[in-house]
Nucleic acid binder design. Structure first.
Length: 314
DNA sequence: AAGCACTGCAACCGCCACCAT
DNA sequence: TATGGTGGCGGTTGCAGTGCT
């Protein structure tokens, strides 16, 4: 069934003229819109309501940001796309003043090509096979990788408990300045993104070295705890890439559920929120008495005596 | 200068979900 | 419950602008 308003004859199509823009802007500004299907008639336009809506949302709305995307916006798009996939409307919500159409066009015309040029599959954010083979012999290669679907089907967002997560300051001398912003207001993922993009680096890093034990019971190709390093084809471990002073693992001792020694710029929360969908039985046990559990709908993380938990919103 | 290929982006199309009747 | 109207979304198209030969 088509749209009622679009089935009427004498509906103009194609690019909007300045006069049409003016009519639509004036009408919406003065009267708002109760029903888009009634807007063309009331505004004196020979367009269908759907076209009016699109024109207003994508071009005439006063709160739209104009001009090129900034590097920060680009980073945000890549990060959120890594999590959400082609959910342009959701991605656009992280970019005030940008529309889903704009983000989609930018992705298709620019970011996609950049990722491909860098050897990443723009759909999955994984290394393309050809690049994987090239880097296979390099155990410390820094890469980006991610799952295709970050959230369980029908989930809208990720929710963390509201407590600010802090490592016990006196329990491990290797960890300093180790406040991790684990905070994310309910259903406000944007807050989390903003915090991570703007926070001082030390807010999100462990300084020093931590030894990890990765116990991974779902060791198949798509197991992907977070994003970051490829240790081998089957075991992927990670941290955030967006932070400055991001350091590579100092040592990789063994592959496949054994110990890893990392220069631990480890647990960025954004990364931790990734990947549980595909590794429901994964447990991560850093030797510094930290634990994290993940499953499809819930996860939790212990650091010393502090305990954090969160869940997906279904 | 002309013709062609490529690119970016505005707009459209088709589908789905939701709501009112 | 079925149906129709509508809003919203992602995929796709078409065209104007640009660059290359």
């Amino acid at each position: 069934m088509g749209h009622h308003c679009c089935s009427k004859q004498r509906v103009k199509r194609g690019l909007w003229s300045p006069e049409e823009d003016d009519k639509l802007s004036t009408h919406i500004t003065n009267h708002g819109h109760v029903s888009w299907s009634s807007v063309p008639k009331l505004a004196g336009l020979q367009r269908c309501g759907k076209s009016c809506r699109l024109r207003w949302i994508n071009y005439l709305r006063p709160d739209l940001k104009r001009g090129s995307f900034t590097e920060e916006e680009e980073r945000t798009i890549v990060e959120v796309h890594r999590i959400l996939g082609n959910r342009w409307a959701q991605i656009a919500k992280h970019l005030p003043g940008r529309t889903d159409n704009e983000v989609k066009n930018f992705w298709n015309s620019c970011i996609k090509k950049k990722l491909l040029a860098q050897g990443f599959d723009p759909n999955t954010h994984n290394l393309l096979l050809s690049h994987k083979n090239k880097s296979k012999s390099k155990t410390k290669t820094k890469t980006k990788t991610a799952n295709h679907h970050r959230f369980p089907p029908n989930s809208n967002s990720l929710v963390f408990s509201d407590d600010h997560h802090q490592l016990p300051s006196d329990t491990n001398s290797e960890l300093q300045n180790n406040t991790i912003n684990f905070e994310c207001n309910t259903a406000d993922y944007n807050t989390q993104m903003h915090n991570i993009n703007n926070a001082p680096t030390t807010d999100y890093q462990f300084l020093g070295t931590s030894s990890l034990n990765i116990s991974n019971s779902v060791s198949n190709n798509d197991v992907n705890l977070c994003d970051g390093y490829i240790i081998d084809e089957n075991s992927i471990w990670s941290t955030t890439r967006s932070l400055e002073n991001f350091e590579q693992p100092t040592q990789t001792t063994q592959v496949g559920g054994a110990d890893y020694n990392y220069d631990a710029s480890l647990f960025d929360m954004l990364s931790i929120s990734y990947g549980f969908e595909d590794c429901p039985s994964t447990t991560i046990l850093p030797s510094s008495s930290s634990q994290m559990y993940g499953d499809m709908e819930q996860f939790a993380w212990c650091e010393g005596n502090n305990f954090q938990c969160g869940s997906y919103v279904l």
